[in-house]
Design a protein around this nucleic acid. Structure first.
Lengths: 210, 210, 210, 210
DNA sequence: TATGAATGAGACTTCATTCAT
DNA sequence: AATGAATGAAGTCTCATTCAT
């Protein structure tokens, strides 16, 4: 029974996905040929089509893969007690993800995915869902913080979330374009961003004084 | 060889660029064929090559065009007296650019350009220069503000600038994917971000006390 | 204005159709590659697609071409006075078409078309219409002959027509498979077939009465 | 090497042949993939090649199968006393074969075989032999009938045979394209065709004179 | 200048067949 | 005997660019 073992099959699949990731990372989806992926994966032309129905299917599989990994990323910051501390935890997780050298290719492909999301419904769904997850998480944290009087009540929780998400999207771009992008330094600024959303202590002090 | 007037020539060039912008906006650079651009511009296949050497040349021309427009955008916020007010002015300008319905196509093409910048040196140069301009502007404002004690001195001016730039990059993405993106609400949050960078009053108090 | 003249364009089209006809005649539709047609036509790969949208389009064009030629063929036998003579005229026309050495390729492609008609709606429509034309013609002749008492009234005019059409379809097959197929001899037999449809002598009696 | 029983082996072979027949009937030889046949037969890719050397081998096996079945068909009309009655018997047998709903697929594949016979020597041999059998049979009957003065002596026996064979070939086509083809009505016309081959009454007169 | 027909390399995908298990 | 994963040549079609007019 030469039916390949599930383990082997999954391994082959990963082999192709990794080759595709590397190729897409270097040349984008549409400048990468199946031949490139085939060569890099060390498999034969036909073999790829035993694992993926088409090039688009391959691209979508990578998008789904990314989606799945980010879900894990988000779960880390969940369940923290203090909402402010939760935000900081989230930031730390993403900062780490941003710094990881092994994630370079994935970040680059992510950017290509952003462009692709503009014209491919399936990809857009995956990408948008990918940013809706952390956004929802942040919204929840912010609302709790607002309820506790820790974050200004006149700010939209969604707006706050979008700002934080945007910062990381921009950081991905800047990091990919510029080798010297200093994540550490920027993180300190991000911490201050959160400070900006907080209700100011002095008010309390002044109030007690009064 | 009947030479065409310079005016006519420029007009034709724009005609092609506009057609290309519309096509690229809808389908990206590599999914758009020269035939699409030709059809949309109302010109002939051969004509395009009288104005642009190649498809890549066309893409680069659009990138340069974008670069030139952004230079104008930045100049608006220059020369303001109060650096903090300068930052707010800059934000207002970009918010407006983000909201302009006529700029939709340009924003979308911009995203495709971000992806293309990953593999095309010439495009990257243009894109990076495009964000270096506002970044330098912000850095100058922040440094002045820090000197005046208006912004925390322990924050890197560059980091602050990168955060603000990142926010707008992320906003472009979110706006292009999501029709309902609420620029107004988000701008309020961005104002708070700047608050976060500012020195808090108590410090002044403490300093005076010391 | 290098827009090709209509004459030139039509000539190119024919060039391709002839190459396709020759290739299909030798190897059938699906065993003939576009490369074969391209090579035979002396044009370039891309050129063919300036004249035909796809291989299927090319096949359909040939089917339509055949359809058009047969319409001409049928028109020959129309308008004859004596319906029996009309039938014989039709037979003569088809016999000639069957014998024409220049039509060999067309007959062979016709057979491939019969097979293709089984799974391609568009082709079937063309083929069926192609046999409905002579059938309708024969039906009209037979009905007139029956009205004149020249052909047995108990035969269905449609059945008679189908028999005559079938004979020629079978002849095409036999001629294409067997170089030695003797059209002359067979035509004598076909004349007898028509004899068989005629009313028997008793009618002559009625006629003698007149 | 666990050898399979001869019975089992033959059963598997038939299983494949039936699947192939169904597939070829629907899509023709070259538009049917081995994968289609495999799926329909319920066997594995490799298994087919244990029973047939190649796809062509499979096609040829079906052609031979057809050949064998037709031999049986012809034998029915053999040995009849009256040659004219023999012709009618043959016609009846073929009419029945034409009507049998279970033979639909076989008739359709037969048409594909006619086309294939144009380029495949092996198939042509099988197909031509397949029509030579009934033709020879008819020739023998006609010659006997001519000897007995029942059929016109000036008709070539071979021509008569070819006409009758052609009629049934054409009927197969018309039946396969047109669900409403009326076999019954056409058979009456075929009976008249045979009438047409018969000597006319005057001959009888001559004979009576003798 | 301007046209658009022509080019041909290269894109993605399929498929008959083989072979390790 | 049987499996089905693997192969890789070949298929159809596209497209940026050129060039005769």
């Amino acid at each position: 029974m030469p039916k390949i073992s599930e383990k082997k099959r999954e391994s082959r699949r990963q082999q192709i996905l990794e080759a595709a990731l590397a190729c897409f990372s270097e040349n984008g989806f549409h400048q990468t040929g199946m031949a490139d992926i085939v060569k890099r994966s060390g498999m034969s032309q036909g073999a790829v089509y035993l694992y993926f129905q088409s090039k688009d299917d391959l691209i979508e599989a990578l998008a789904d893969d990314r989606h799945r990994r980010e879900a894990v990323l988000n779960s880390v910051a969940r369940g923290s007690g203090d909402p402010i501390e939760g935000l900081h935890a989230l930031i730390r997780v993403y900062a780490q993800w941003l710094t990881d050298p092994a994630g370079e290719a994935r970040r680059r492909v992510g950017i290509h995915g952003w462009a692709e999301a503009l014209r491919n419904r399936r990809i857009r769904a995956s990408v948008v869902e990918g940013i809706d997850m952390p956004r929802a998480l942040i919204v929840a944290l912010v609302e709790r913080a607002q309820h506790d009087g820790l974050i200004k009540r006149d700010l939209g929780a969604d707006a706050v979330a979008r700002v934080l998400v945007a910062i990381f999207q921009g950081f991905v771009l800047q990091k990919c374009w510029d080798e010297d992008f200093d994540v550490e330094a920027c993180m300190a600024a991000v911490a201050s961003v959160i400070e900006g959303f907080r209700t100011t202590k002095p008010d309390v002090g002044r109030r007690t004084r009064a």
